[in-house]
Write a protein that binds this DNA or RNA. Sequence first.
RNA 1: CGGGAUGUAGUACAGUUGGUAGUAUACUUGGUUUGGGACCAAGGGGUCGCACGUUCGAGUCGUGUCAUCCCGACCA
Length: 492
Amino acid sequence: MAKELDFLTKRSEDYSKWYNELVIKADLAEQSDVRGCMVIKPYGYAIWEKMQRALDDKFKETDVQNAYFPLLIPKSFLSREAEHVEGFAKECAVVTHYRLKTNDSHDGVVVDPAAKLEEELIIRPTSETIIWNTFKNWIHSYRDLPLLVNQWCNVMRWEMRTRLFLRTAEFLWQEGHTAHATKEEAEARAQQMLKVYADFAENYMAVPVVQGVKSETERFAGALDTYTIEAMMQDGKALQSGTSHFLGQNFGKAFDVQFLNKENKMEYAWATSWGVSTRLMGALIMTHSDDNGLVLPPALAPIQVVIIPIGKADQMPMLNEKAEAIVKNLRAMGISVKYDNADNKRPGFKFADYELKGVPVRLVLGARDLEQGLVEIMRRDNLEKTNVPVDGIEEHIKNLLDEIQANIFKKAKDFRDAHIYECDNYEEFKERVKDGGFFLCHWDGTAETEAKIKEETQATIRCIPFGFEQTAGVDMVSGKPSVARVLVARSY
RNA sequence: CGGGAUGUAGUACAGUUGGUAGUAUACUUGGUUUGGGACCAAGGGGUCGCACGUUCGAGUCGUGUCAUCCCGACCA
């Protein structure tokens, strides 16, 4: 019998609660005792590592190299670019001292007032400033360009309200920073990296995304253009899953990064930056999971196949032998597999546990079935169980993994497409947007209209989407002419 | 920083008019089990967030304080 206490909140009942419980119970992460921070547990980190590896490979295919820059940024660096400091000032953690000392009663430590820093250091909320300060030394000629670097690191943004993976004070990410000799090249790079993100989201995470460009008010602090991929979660809300910024010459000018171009003239370098964070974990969870727990795409699942034996004690040696042969064959095919013959947990517990953890394929090696040369195979995406011959099971599994990867993407895409609406009536919009979904609406391009929508409905313009056939129309709020539809939704 | 709530075992909670600190789960040990989250028995685990006050006596009442969570504002 199911023990109610241990089961998840139903997804449909309380989406936020369900999400939070799922992250904790699937052993991905937990709230740290440190305010606003998160502990990523080994299983969660294993998924993140697979994401990192796949992304890193893609970056390298586009000639990007990894590097590492300091965690601490002098306060003066941050203020060099006006909009940039404006955007981040409110959420920076500041280092003011470099030493502690024991207190007067010798039972604790206090900050040593004598160790006050001349200039405060900021824990990086992002690294544009310190990187461009460094680029100044690296760039002298057009021959030094393009300069394409990425770093995997942690950053800190002192958020008021946090949620596991979606918004934490400290988070892990990658931030790519590039410098170019021409505007065109920089713009192309920003768009190229957006494509890399979109490709990764769809083909590895199986998360369909809308690509587009942010409106002026939603832009990254200091950017001329911010490109974005927006995913739809199962409650219909949007999640900004990755961004790529065209920074123009803003940082080149702020940090005086000039080079001699082919015409022997000094010119400021053109910049891009782009990043994805552990928030992708949130996207992965909220896109595919169901009431039984996580559903992981095979491409990112740390364990792709779990094998569970069932039999009496005297049958175990035979089952172990059978299983080990399958494990060996699967590993040789590059499939990660776990054989769980722990005898301190009953099969039912294991079934539930691996479902909770989203393992794509489960094989039940039962003594009873094996007599007929069969094993039970269950796919996590639709929970279907079938008995298949144990001979040739490896090939069957390989195909099934591919099928699951394709199927969960299709499922997510069908769901999203069914919740994208064209809407031309503001009253109708106000009513329907509460229930979630993406709305394609005409917009007059003004910040006033944007602010009004946000204030009255909590929905924001997520992006001006690419890849849609656009026709002119009339703004649903102001009635003014509009050249194109924009994507409007409530978001995380 | 505005509005609301909550602090009791690792976790989730109960605790009546103030009178020996409880339940479930998790944990430890032993045994029986193992085809969908097992059962039985025994055991360990608490300055009831903190401080002060009222009282013979405070988890319970009062004041203060700290922390956390939820709804806003801000955000990858």
